[in-house]
Design a protein around this nucleic acid. Structure first.
Lengths: 248, 248
DNA sequence: TCTGTGATTTGATTTCGATCAATTACAGAG
DNA sequence: CTCTGTAATTGATCGAAATCAAATCACAGA
């Protein structure tokens, strides 16, 4: 079984426009049919709560369109985002029906849902799916750990720069970035949601955005649209390694 | 959100004293034999680095004895712990040989190692193992997310109390806790390592430990041995829910 | 065009934890 | 038992981000 780790085949989950990270990325045509048989779509408006922490979830799902967030809330209202779900990300835990976190639509969101029971059955018969899920979960764990470094040790300015770099990477069509040319993207989150992501207050987020603008690291067109003329300049503000392994 | 896995069968991985979360928890006798054939033990002294971030790891492993930490370090030396590995925890990523984090022995550590290649082959043939790994990874992801809330939103005092509660839970023989009776345990980390775990400085850790002692939430015997007379009193300091779902 | 509401920015002040700087406690070596 | 070095505690001060408090902006709907 040549573990095709790196580039995965981009088989479509039928009409589902998910292409790379989705559960069905490695499936054979007949397996796709089985997935199709148990799936349905669901849409949510921006701001709408998709699931409340503690709810029973009778499905697992894959994000097709939009941005959703996982957040934890303390009794006194302090909130921390613990997951940011972009298209192709997976929602839900195969063996646990009870949701551990609030899932909220940050923009208009479409999910491709799979009914829990038949999905579990299918997983039992189709090792691909479990393997794919393991890989995705490990990636998510890596992301969570980078996030922990950000939360625990970075300054407000570094947090903002890191967040912008993450969004720029996941939002654009991956090609350039390191090379020349301006990058532009829309922020998928309000200042408040950014604060929840970064462990800051919205005021601090706003101030640091202004500071990065003042220092010509970024430019803003409107409140949400960001222009990054030189991506390396932004990276210099993140506190991260300049980039592993320049050949001496 | 008590992440409580369904109770798993406690089959021994041969001589290996791992009992509950280990990869082999669900294996049949013949599968255990195959695992035994590719495994070996390795020991490390306290403070020793087991793997450096970026190293090639030719094995994956399960912690048998002791405590190890995963840490990330920034160029200027700021450090954040991103994983705390106790006995039965898994180390390494099946499909990625390059270590993403420094792995350091916090105490004397024994690992049960499985050579990468044959382990992968065995995973291919034995769905149990991949399923077990997925479940363990999902648990780790939950733990990381609780950790993110701690790092992003909790005060220094809450961080210390939460850490002590976590260690108390994982260190003791699980039974009581909620009920009466004092709990005692040894801290497996130095103040500095606790600081790296909590996103604080060692001075702040020390000060807050003293404060909890002054306020009779904990008592100390020596520097490392903690006595918790009333676990609920400690929980009150964590900022977490008093405990989900008391029936009204 | 006017108006109201929510999102965002900006300003003034406070506070918690970091930083700088000495002690103090303690385990292991001799 | 004393010496020594590392771990831990404690104190004084500083500073980054939180908090409290107003503007200002942006845009949907009357």
């Amino acid at each position: 079984m040549a573990a095709r780790s790196m580039t995965l085949p981009r088989i479509e989950c039928s009409e589902c426009p998910i292409r790379h990270r989705a559960v069905c990325a490695r499936c054979e045509p007949d397996e796709l049919e089985q997935l199709d048989a148990i799936k349905y779509y669901r849409s949510y408006d921006a701001g709408q709560t998709i699931v409340w922490a503690g709810d029973e979830m009778d499905f697992v799902a894959s994000v097709v369109k939009g941005v959703a967030s996982l957040t934890q809330t303390m009794e006194d209202g302090r909130r921390q985002m613990v997951g940011l779900l972009l298209p192709s990300d997976f929602v839900g835990r195969p063996n646990r029906a009870e949701a551990a976190y609030d899932v909220t639509a940050a923009s208009e969101v479409t999910l491709c849902c799979f009914r829990r029971k038949p999905f579990l059955d299918l997983m039992g018969e189709t090792p691909h799916i479990g393997q794919r899920l393991l890989e995705m979960t490990l990636d998510e764990l890596d992301a969570a750990r980078e996030w922990m470094l950000l939360l625990g040790r970075k300054t407000a300015r570094e947090k903002i720069a890191s967040f912008l770099a993450i969004i720029a990477r996941r939002g654009t069509t991956t090609t350039d970035l390191g090379s020349a040319g301006a990058i532009e993207f829309d922020l998928p989150l309000t200042r408040e949601a950014m604060a929840d992501y970064l462990g800051l207050t919205l005021e601090t987020v706003s101030r640091q955005m202004s500071a990065l603008k003042r220092d010509n690291v970024i430019a803003l067109k409107g409140k949400r649209h960001v222009v990054v003329e030189d991506f390396n300049l932004l990276m210099d503000e993140t506190g991260d390694d300049a980039d592993g392994g320049m050949p001496s």
